[in-house]
């Protein structure tokens, strides 16, 4: 199957001479959830801003759908790739939730009827019926973030980029983000997550790309990446606490790839290994 997003030998040098990403190759297919990890300044956001044409490669090529991002207008690309910013205040500015939800569709000059249907779908999926007349700025930060996600959902781009979706969220908010990512996936979207939240990636157990000093240094299943000590150290990352724990308590290698409390308990039950022998640790 042809990848939906294809990044070929892409580098980006900013006008000030800083090379923010170097020789990146990456294919993303329909139905995938991909997390992009790395420390501040590693090039995560620069890479992802190429998907919707906000940045154009200074070397190499990117295709999204069948479009070459160098040749297409941002407005056209934005109907394919929706970007939910870290700070919802940067993309919410209308006086009511309902207007906010319709804004992206209106911008893309969809018909009134089409807009109505799409906005209604977003309202249903996000359970926003009771909030339509609220001013987004009267909502708390989690709710505001949901409105930003719902308005992107209304446009229904193939790819939804979530930039640090769990930042500043409480436990309940983080669980909600997890549900929403799964919902986007069920609805047929590709989800690209830029995040520092190892718990979130552990729960999703999705494909994980690690950026470090402008380069891609890993691209594999989260459980594989998290158990690669060299990569994690190089990128200044630590797996979720439960994975660090599992690494130290058992000599059963299989368990080291579990990334959540629930999955380890389930595994123990299935294997009747409640009396797990203590290994040497690592």
């Amino acid at each position: 199957m042809e990848p939906y997003i294809s990044v070929k030998n892409v580098s980006h040098k900013y006008p000030n001479g800083v090379t923010a990403i170097k020789d990146i190759n990456l294919d993303i297919h329909e139905g995938e959830v991909v997390a992009i990890l790395g420390s501040n300044g590693s090039g995560k956001t620069t890479l992802v801003k190429h998907f919707n044409g906000l940045l154009k490669p200074t070397k190499g090529e990117i295709t999204v759908g069948t479009m070459n991002t160098k040749k297409e207008r941002i407005s056209k690309l934005s109907s394919r790739v929706g970007y939910v910013f870290q700070n919802p205040n940067h993309q919410t500015f209308l006086p009511s939730v309902k207007q906010e939800l319709a804004y992206g569709c209106k911008n893309l000059k969809m018909t009134e009827e089409d807009i109505e249907t799409r906005v209604q779908k977003a309202i249903d999926l996000f359970r926003l019926e009771d909030r339509l007349d609220d001013n987004p700025f009267d909502l708390n930060s989690s709710q505001r973030k949901e409105v930003a996600m719902a308005s992107i959902m209304a446009v229904s781009p193939k790819v939804i980029v979530l930039d640090e979706p769990t930042t500043g969220q409480d436990h309940k908010g983080c669980k909600r983000v997890l549900e929403l990512v799964r919902m986007f996936q069920r609805e047929g979207h590709i989800v690209v997550l830029i995040t520092h939240d190892m718990h979130l990636i552990g729960e999703l157990n999705c494909r994980t790309v690690v950026m470090n000093q402008s380069e891609k240094i890993a691209d594999d299943h989260a459980s594989v990446v998290f158990s690669d000590k060299g990569i994690m150290e190089e990128a200044g990352l630590q797996p979720p606490q439960i994975t660090q724990f599992a690494n130290q308590i058992t000599n059963l290698d299989e368990m080291k790839t579990y990334l959540t409390v629930e999955s380890i308990i389930e595994w123990m039950k299935a294997n009747k290994e409640e009396d797990v022998k203590v290994g040497t640790g690592s």
């Binding site: 409480d170 436990h171 309940k172 718990h199 979720p240 606490q241 439960i242 724990f245 409390v261 629930e262 380890i264 308990i265 123990m268 409640e274």
Partner: peptide
């Protein structure tokens, strides 16, 4: 609606 550290959650579930 809060969570304890993962290791605490694990030991309790275990």
């Amino acid at each position: 609606t809060l969570n304890a550290p993962q290791v605490t959650e694990f030991l309790s579930s275990y």
